Simulated scan of single mutants.
Amino acid sequence: MAELDLSSDVVALTAALCDIESVSRDEGGIADAVEAALRALPHLDVTRFGHTVVARTDLGREERVVLAGHLDTVPLTDPPNLPTRREMVDGEEVLYGRGTVDMKGGVAVQLRIAHEVREPARDLTFVFYEAEEIEERYNGLKHLAADHPELLAADLAVLLEPTNAEVEGGCKGTMRVEVSTKGIAAHSARPWNGHNAIHDMHDILRRLADYEERAVEVDGLTYHEALQAVGIEGGIAGNVIPDRCTVRINYRFAPDRSGEEALAHLHSVFPEHELRVTDLAEGARPGLDRPAAQTFVEALAVPVGPKEGWTDVARFAALGIPAVNFGPGDPNLAHHDEERCPVAQLVAAEAAMLRWLA
């Protein structure tokens, strides 16, 4: 079994975590290493569910905070982008390798805090979960929230996903729907015998092109909505008038709307059409008006903005826990063949969290 030295610096610990391959559904080795390292710390109570590890302090503090991060990565490249390596790029030292951004740098920060902060000012819950990068049904945080929500109870949750070491509050919701038009099939040489469903799609596409997306302030952060066609299908052959055309639409909605309200809005945009919902994930308000969140932002003293995508902070919001994203790494380099994180950013993220907790 691989061993982790939590007393090592955050960069070396990130490299050690990355060098334990943990592609989704194969997190057993890294979960074993994380569990063993945490069980060696007497101030923590450690439990494990599958390949999800939870460690908690129980000091009777007035406030509790969850620090969460996933253990899995997307598949390696060919040839593999492991083991990790350190290089100088434009005068800056960088750590290369799968997981350096998404998100073993954040996991290393969690583990360093677990090792270094034995008497935190607020009780801490550390969550290291499996299967974030694949289908939701495997997601370890989802199962933990459903089966053991008491372990996630807190005044604030911090998901250490990559944010360039800046705070990103909450997240937008996402909904995918399909809209179809119906026609009558016929030979393309005699189109008057049929009705072209693709031509009828013009009105739907025009509404999407003309749609004015909202910019919405929620708890002091401005989220930019997006309504876009992301796919279209129609026609069965080059000599057949298509009798059906379907466009797939993705709506990224601000966290002031619930999924139900988002769907109602789409019905107002396409009142004459039936909408088939194929995917829905609720957004999360940042909760920056909560005292715990305000203290976090003040202590870190880094830029604060909205999370324009979707992350697992929404699972905490569903439990009534305000949640923010904060972690090292440029999210634009997540899953990249040349995935890499500046060494200085790993160090800065750890320092910022220690300012808050210690």
Results as ranks from 00 to 15, higher is better:
residue 4 L to W: 09
residue 5 D to Y: 04
residue 6 L to F: 11
residue 6 L to Q: 06
residue 6 L to N: 07
residue 7 S to F: 07
residue 8 S to L: 04
residue 9 D to S: 10
residue 11 V to P: 04
residue 13 L to I: 03
residue 16 A to T: 02
residue 17 L to V: 05
residue 19 D to S: 05
residue 22 S to Y: 05
residue 32 D to I: 00
residue 37 A to N: 00
residue 38 L to M: 00
residue 39 R to P: 00
residue 41 L to K: 02
residue 43 H to A: 02
residue 46 V to G: 02
residue 59 L to E: 06
residue 66 V to F: 06
residue 68 A to S: 14
residue 69 G to R: 07
residue 70 H to K: 09
residue 71 L to W: 09
residue 72 D to N: 11
residue 73 T to A: 02
residue 74 V to W: 01
residue 77 T to K: 04
residue 77 T to E: 13
residue 87 E to V: 14
residue 89 V to M: 10
residue 91 G to Y: 07
residue 97 G to Y: 06
residue 98 R to I: 12
residue 100 T to Y: 06
residue 103 M to E: 05
residue 103 M to W: 02
residue 106 G to L: 01
residue 109 V to D: 02
residue 109 V to F: 03
residue 114 A to Y: 09
residue 117 V to T: 12
residue 118 R to A: 15
residue 119 E to N: 10
residue 120 P to D: 03
residue 127 V to M: 00
residue 128 F to Q: 03
residue 128 F to V: 02
residue 130 E to V: 01
residue 133 E to L: 12
residue 141 L to T: 04
residue 141 L to V: 03
residue 142 K to C: 06
residue 155 D to K: 08
residue 157 A to K: 03
residue 159 L to S: 09
residue 159 L to P: 00
residue 160 L to E: 10
residue 162 P to W: 00
residue 166 E to R: 15
residue 167 V to P: 09
residue 167 V to I: 15
residue 167 V to E: 11
residue 169 G to A: 12
residue 188 S to E: 11
residue 188 S to F: 10
residue 190 R to M: 13
residue 191 P to S: 11
residue 193 N to F: 13
residue 198 I to L: 13
residue 200 D to V: 09
residue 201 M to P: 07
residue 203 D to Q: 15
residue 204 I to G: 01
residue 204 I to T: 10
residue 206 R to V: 03
residue 207 R to Y: 07
residue 210 D to I: 10
residue 214 R to M: 10
residue 214 R to H: 14
residue 216 V to M: 14
residue 216 V to Q: 10
residue 220 G to Q: 12
residue 223 Y to R: 10
residue 228 Q to A: 14
residue 230 V to R: 14
residue 230 V to H: 14
residue 236 I to F: 02
residue 237 A to R: 13
residue 238 G to N: 15
residue 238 G to L: 13
residue 241 I to L: 13
residue 241 I to A: 12
residue 242 P to M: 14
residue 244 R to W: 08
residue 246 T to W: 07
residue 247 V to Q: 08
residue 249 I to L: 11
residue 249 I to W: 08
residue 249 I to Y: 11
residue 250 N to K: 13
residue 251 Y to T: 06
residue 254 A to C: 12
residue 254 A to Y: 11
residue 256 D to R: 13
residue 256 D to V: 11
residue 258 S to R: 09
residue 260 E to A: 15
residue 260 E to M: 06
residue 263 L to N: 05
residue 265 H to V: 06
residue 266 L to S: 01
residue 266 L to Q: 04
residue 270 F to M: 08
residue 275 L to T: 10
residue 276 R to W: 03
residue 277 V to A: 15
residue 278 T to N: 09
residue 281 A to L: 14
residue 282 E to H: 10
residue 284 A to R: 05
residue 285 R to G: 07
residue 286 P to L: 01
residue 288 L to G: 12
residue 289 D to H: 15
residue 290 R to L: 08
residue 290 R to W: 03
residue 294 Q to A: 13
residue 294 Q to S: 12
residue 300 L to M: 05
residue 301 A to K: 05
residue 301 A to N: 09
residue 304 V to C: 08
residue 305 G to W: 01
residue 307 K to V: 09
residue 308 E to S: 15
residue 309 G to V: 08
residue 321 I to A: 09
residue 323 A to V: 00
residue 328 P to I: 01
residue 329 G to K: 01
residue 337 D to R: 14
residue 346 L to E: 07
residue 350 E to N: 03
residue 357 L to P: 09
